[in-house]
Simulated scan of single mutants.
Amino acid sequence: MGVRLNPFTVAVIGFTLNVAAYNAAYLTTAFNGLDKTQLEAARAQGFEPSQVFRLITLPQVLRTSVPALTNQVIGNLKDSSITFLIQYTEFFARMQELASTNFQFFKAYLLTALVYLLLVSIIVLVARMIERRVLIPIN
């Protein structure tokens, strides 16, 4: 077809399409879990469709999908190492190159694992803060 893209562009497009598909599924599932009587009550009260979406639907969908979206972010972080298949040298591939120059594979892979663990831990802590912030109290 004659289309030439650099590896970074291909990685961004691929991850964007993948993330969009999974996130759409998570948000659709959260939307389907909404109590439809709330939406009907809002319309009966005279809310415009945009107000129903902005004030009732969207906040509840985002609240209930935080755990699934967090898992998706962590999965994307782990999946980023696949980009070496399209000749994009990311963090893990760089660590492999470093290890192959000095033959200290254990140290390089241990450092890589610690960096990934740190990044995942930060994502989990941020997600927990978001979950606590948007928690719906049960009476």
Rank of each mutant, 00 (worst) to 15 (best):
R63L: 01
L69Q: 03
E97N: 14
I74K: 12
Q38G: 09
V73Q: 13
A25C: 14
Q60V: 03
L27G: 08
Q60A: 02
L77K: 01
S65M: 02
A25L: 15
T16Q: 10
L27M: 12
L34K: 12
F92S: 07
S65C: 07
Q38F: 08
P49E: 01
F84E: 07
T57L: 11
L17W: 06
I13V: 04
A30E: 02
P49H: 00
G75Y: 12
L58N: 05
A41M: 02
Q38M: 09
V61Q: 06
T83V: 10
Y88F: 14
I74N: 09
L39S: 05
N32M: 11
A44R: 08
A11I: 01
Y26A: 02
D79R: 02
Q51W: 04
G46S: 02
I13Q: 00
Q87H: 11
A42P: 03
V12D: 06
T29E: 10
T16H: 09
A93V: 08
Q96K: 15
V19P: 10
A20I: 05
P7A: 03
S80P: 08
L85G: 12
A21D: 01
T64D: 08
A21S: 03
L39P: 08
Q45V: 12
T70V: 08
L69I: 07
L17M: 13
V12L: 04
T37F: 09
T89P: 13
P49S: 01
K36A: 14
F15Q: 02
V19D: 04
N71W: 00
E48G: 13
G46E: 00
E97M: 12
I82V: 04
D35E: 11
T29G: 10
G75I: 12
G33I: 02
A44Q: 06
E40F: 06
K78Y: 00
I74F: 03
A11E: 00
T16W: 11
T89V: 15
I86K: 00
P59F: 00
Y26D: 07
G33S: 05
Q45H: 15
I82E: 06
I56T: 02
E40M: 10
A30I: 01
F84R: 06
T83D: 01
A41W: 03
Y22E: 08
R43Q: 14
F92H: 08
P49L: 01
A42Q: 02
A24Q: 07
A21E: 05
G14M: 07
F15L: 09
T29M: 09
Y22G: 03
K36P: 13
Q45N: 14
A21N: 04
N76Q: 14
A30T: 04
V52K: 05
L98P: 15
T70I: 06
R54G: 09
I86L: 03
L58C: 04
F8H: 12
F8D: 11
L85R: 09
L58W: 06
L17R: 12
R43P: 14
T37V: 14
Q51A: 10
L58G: 02
I13Y: 03
M95T: 09
E40P: 11
E40A: 08
I13F: 00
A42G: 01
